[in-house]
Structure formats: C-alpha cells, structure tokens
C-alpha cells in the first residue's frame, strides 16, 4: 500500500511531471512509438484483412501465421533486430508492428466473415459491384469487430512499447528500467501505473468509438457485452450517427 501511495505521489509531483526527463515528455515518446507502429500495422493489415475477409481466400494461412506470430518473444526479437541493424527507432517499431498486425488482421477478416452470407448475396443480387459490397455493406457491418481488433492491438502495443527504453529511446518504460536498475521500486511502480493508466484511457476512447460505429439497426454483441435485444436502441445511436 505504501509503495502505491508513494508511486502516486511521484506521478503527481509537478517536478516529475514536466522536467526534461519527466513524465510528460516520456509519455509523448511512448505515444509516438505507439502511434507510428499502429499506423504502419494498419497500413499492412487493412488491405490484407479486407482481401481475406471479402474473398475468404488465404484464411487458413492467416489463422496459422497469426497464432505462430503470437508465440514470438518480443524481447528476443528486439535484441535480434538491434544486432542486425544497430540501436535506433526502427527495431522498436518493427517489433511493435509484428506484435500489432496479427490481432488487427484477425479483427478485420473475422469481422467480415461474421456477416450473414445472405446479406452479402442479396447485395450482389440487386447489382452491387464487389467494391460497393465491400464499402457499403461489409465494412460498415464489420466495423465494430474491426475496432475490437484495433483495441486489442493498441493495448498490446502500449504495454510492449516499454521495451523502447532498453535501447535508450525513452518512453514510459524508462521509469521501470531505471527503477529496477536503481532498486527504486517506487519509481518502477510509478512507471507501471502510468502505462496502465495510458492503456485504460486509450482503450476507453476506442470503446467509445466502437459504440459510435455500431450500425444502427444491427443488434449485436460487441466484445462480450450483449445488448438488450428488447431495447429500442436506435433512438440514441441513430441520432449520434446522423448528427
């Protein structure tokens, strides 16, 4: 208990917050690495996931490689990239991208594959082109599950971006490493708490977006929480979307 209080006191000490190596610049670094990695991962995963989800092709390959990628130890991978390429930003980003792509991909293709085949058949039957089916039917209906995948990936990337500190790039991991090295457990704990809080806030924001993109008219459960089927829900949601 004492440690936790001290850690919290550390976090809210203005000196620790805004100094040159304080919490705010570290937070900025952490968000920067997370942002760059997620952006690159999305650029890779979106076209690939849409292709797999729309055509159903390559799905088995995707499932197999997704689970094997999950087994890769991130720290070992980081060391490997550093040995290959020297210390710098890109080994860190590469590790985070490799971490983020599988859950993103899984979210995208499983979101698309979860759509009732008859709905897609009907869209084709009235004369939509394949691209129109993708844009006007599959993506809107898959979006909640896709954003679920983005939430997963972002959480993992935020947690793992602490490794940036091992190669001298800072980020919130810096507090943890420094704390461990100096046997300053309050410092290490403060670092861990900061990562946790950041993860919670980002996840909450994404959860909000996920609610917003839930297509009005579609009652479906997202991330395990099932909606009350009897509720006349479009009132609120529909207005948010239209407004």
């Amino acid at each position: 208990m004492d440690f936790i209080l001290q850690a919290i006191a550390f976090i809210f000490d203005p000196q620790n917050l805004f100094g040159e190596k304080g919490i705010v610049p570290r937070l900025g670094e952490h968000l920067l690495y997370t942002g760059i990695s997620m952006a690159i991962a999305l650029v890779i995963a979106i076209p690939l996931g849409l292709f797999i989800g729309h055509t159903g092709r390559g799905r088995n390959v995707a499932v197999a490689s997704t689970s094997s990628f999950r087994a890769v130890p991130t720290f070992g991978l980081l060391l490997y990239f550093v040995l290959l390429n020297g210390i710098g930003l890109w080994p860190v980003v590469a590790v985070l991208v490799i971490l983020a792509v599988p859950p993103l991909l899984a979210g995208i293709y499983s979101g698309l594959l979860a759509i009732d085949r008859r709905t897609i058949d009907a869209a084709r039957g009235v004369g939509m082109t394949e691209l129109q089916i993708l844009r006007k039917v599959e993506i809107p209906l898959a979006l909640p599950i896709v954003i679920g995948g983005i939430r997963n990936a972002t959480l993992q990337v935020i947690a793992t971006a602490t490794i940036a500190a091992y190669v001298g790039l800072g980020g919130l991991g810096r507090f943890i490493i420094e704390g461990l090295a100096l046997h300053d457990f309050v410092l290490a704990l403060a670092g861990a708490i900061l990562v946790l809080i950041l993860a919670l806030i980002v996840d909450l924001a994404l959860a909000g977006i996920q609610k917003l993109v839930l297509p009005a008219g579609v009652a479906q459960s997202i991330s395990g929480r099932s909606r009350n089927r009897d509720r006349k829900f479009p009132a609120g949601l529909a207005q948010l979307r239209e407004g």
Partner: peptide, 15 residues
C-alpha cells in the same frame, strides 16, 4: 440492376 430479385429471406441490408 435491370432485373428485380426478391429473396426468400427478404435479404434486406440490416444497417
């Protein structure tokens, strides 16, 4: 697009 198609399950777009 120039043939009307009415499906067994109505096939409406839920969204």
């Amino acid at each position: 697009r120039r043939i009307g198609y009415v499906m067994q399950n109505s096939g409406l777009l839920p969204h």
